[in-house]
Structures are given as C-alpha cells and as structure tokens.
Nucleic acid binder design. Structure first.
Lengths: 181, 181
DNA sequence: ACTTTTATTGAACAATGTTCATGCTTCTGC
DNA sequence: GCAGAAGCATGAACATTGTTCAATAAAAGT
C-alpha cells in the first residue's frame, strides 16, 4: 500500500480489509503503524543495500568510479522505488516513541558502501574521520536525489539528474583528493 | 506554535484558543492549514533569504568563498530555526491540492544566491546549465544540513558540521572548476 | 430604522489510530 | 477425547483532528 499510494495512503482500515481481517487484528501483528512502517522500511533498506552492493562490485575500477557508480545506483533505486524510498525519510516517529535499535542498525549499514572506497582513497584518515566524510558524501548525494525527484520545483528529467549526480560526485571526490594534499 | 512544538504540534483547536477565537473562525483567515503552513513557510523563507544575502555580501572576496559562506549561513539558519526550517520540507500538501504560485516563487528565490557567484565562476555556461548546477549545489548542501541536524543517526556537534560543510562545499567547487578545464 | 453583508460561534461530521470486552480457536497436559 | 489455558479475531467504541455549517451576532450601507 505504501508503494502504491505513498505513506499518507496507508490506512489501518484499508490495510485490514486488504489482508482480510478486522481493524483491531492488525495490532496482533504490529504494535503501532510506526512499527509497520519501520518494518517495511527495513525491507526497502535491505533491497537498497543489495542494489548498492551490486553497483560497488560491478566493473573493477578505481575507488572514485566505484563511488560514482554507488551514487548513480542510489539515484536509480530511488527513482524505481519512489514511494518506498520516500517513506524512509518522510516518516516521523509518533510522539515520545523512539526508533528501535534494529531499525537504526538497518540505516547504518548503508554507510559501509561509501566507507570502503573512501578508506582506500584516504588511507591516512582515521576511522572516525572517514565515517564523517562518508556520511557527508551520502548526505550530499541524497540531497540531490531527494530534491531532484521532487519534481515540484524544476522538472529535471531522470537522465539529466543522473548525469548531474555523477558530475557533482566526481567533483566532490576530486576536490577532496586535491584538498588533502 | 510550529516554532515551539514542530509541525506536528500545530493543532487547529490549540491555535484557536491561543489567538482567542472559536475553532471555525480560523477558516476565515485561512482556507486550509496547508495555506497556514505555507504562509508561515513564506516568512521563514524570507528570513532565510535575508540571512543568505547577508552572508553573500559579507567580506568581499572570491565567488568560491562567497559560496562557502552561503552554505555555512544556510547551516546556521537551519540550526537557529530548526523547527521552522524543518517545516519547510516536512510539509506535504493535502491530497489533490497544489502548491500555489506565490509559494513556489518564494522557494525559487533561494537559488538566486547560488546562481550569482556560479555565473561569475563559469561565464561560459548557459543560463540553464547554471540553474541546474545551482540547484545541485543547493541540494547537496541541504542534504548535509538535513541529515546533520537530524542527530538521530550520528550525533555530530554543530561546529564539526559547519567545518564539514565548508570542506565539502569547497571540494565541490574546486572539483567543478578543475573538471571544466 | 431597516436591510444586507460579514464575522463568530460551537455543535456536528468525517477520517483515522487505537483499545477493549466478548466470543471463538487452538493448543496442552492428562 | 477433553477440560482448561492461552492466544486470536471481531467490531463496536473512544480520542484526536481537520473541516463544515446553521444559527446568531456584529457591522456596514442606505
């Protein structure tokens, strides 16, 4: 239902009807809709993880190009799974509730993909520095994808967005390499 | 109320009580809460515009440094106006409704700040290319600020975030310059 | 002063997440 | 086989919220 009508289109009553049970029975499977959304998010994150892994390995080449491929793969995944991907970031936890550990773990796993090539590129940097850089790179690419797929402001066709992301990703990496010297 | 308790803390009844009128009277001032939120967003965007203008002009220097200052100013504004700034991006229009022109106009104005220095740096590029690059740069910085202030994943202290943003902004710009040659 | 327009009120409606008393299945130990 | 227990399903009911609306009051116009 999230994939079809978006996060806002997920209603407990519709859901109960779809899976063929009463309203209340949903709460035997899940404590909250928060939990339900997190569990869907977990699946999405795992599929995203696979997509990034595939991009990481494909075509042995420089770490630079691996990072660019990962960025493009991220963009493609988001475009192909628009609603599910949006749900990952649109969702806000209900008041007072805290994100469970297993969900945080799912999110953290993403940075691994960026960490690895970065560590090869910058062997002198500490684990912590690399972690921060990895997160920054991810955030930057994520921002481009997020606003690029929003379509509301300026309608940029997907191929142009991919090219733009590849360009800026290369620029960031080149800039980082040049800057460290 | 948005500034205090966040977008989710805005309730029409509380609002009516706060301004001293009946529930329904709110709808003489605004058609929707969507409109209300957009109007608050408009004010936020104007204040943001002023903050970026101040950063743009401060300390005559290279376009590169102007861009970095703008990025930092964006980060600072977001940190100082966290809830209001979040409301700009968290809000999704109610089903079927479309964002009015005046609100889109408000959003577009932001890119001007980035466009100007970019045009100086890359005089050969077309207006359209510059527009796309401006949006990409903005998106990338926005992504860093957004995930950086989220605090949920990794708690990065604000000074570190500012440094990180400045570093990656410089890297992006350097990379773009090097790449064009 | 009377009419017309506008604003205010607060009850009512609809949508939606969540809970719960009641009753029904299914499993367990014998 | 079966009594009791444990779990599950049901759908009504509740709480919260955005929104509407008929009735009423206020203001403006003439």
């Amino acid at each position: 239902m999230i994939a079809g009508r978006g996060l806002a289109g997920l209603k407990t009553r519709d859901l109960a009807r779809e899976i063929g049970c009463a309203n209340g029975a949903v709460y035997n499977l899940v404590a909250d809709i928060d939990e339900l959304i997190l569990r869907v998010g977990s699946r999405t994150l795992h599929r995203l993880d696979e997509a990034l892994s595939a991009a990481e390995g494909a075509g042995e080449s420089s770490p630079q190009e691996a990072l660019v491929r990962i960025a493009i793969a991220y963009c493609d995944f988001a475009a192909d799974n628009l609603q599910l991907w949006r749900a990952l970031f649109e969702h806000r936890m209900g008041a007072g509730k805290v994100v469970p550990d297993w969900s945080v773990e799912d999110q953290m796993r993403l940075f691994r993909h960026i960490y690895q090539p970065l560590a090869t590129l910058f062997p002198k940097r500490s684990r912590e520095e690399l972690g921060i850089t990895a997160r920054s790179l991810f955030s930057a690419v994520h921002g481009m994808v997020a606003l690029g797929l929003e379509q509301k402001l300026v309608a940029v066709p997907l191929p142009a967005l991919r090219k733009e992301i590849a360009g800026l990703a290369r620029a960031m990496i080149d800039g980082l390499i040049a800057r460290q010297r």
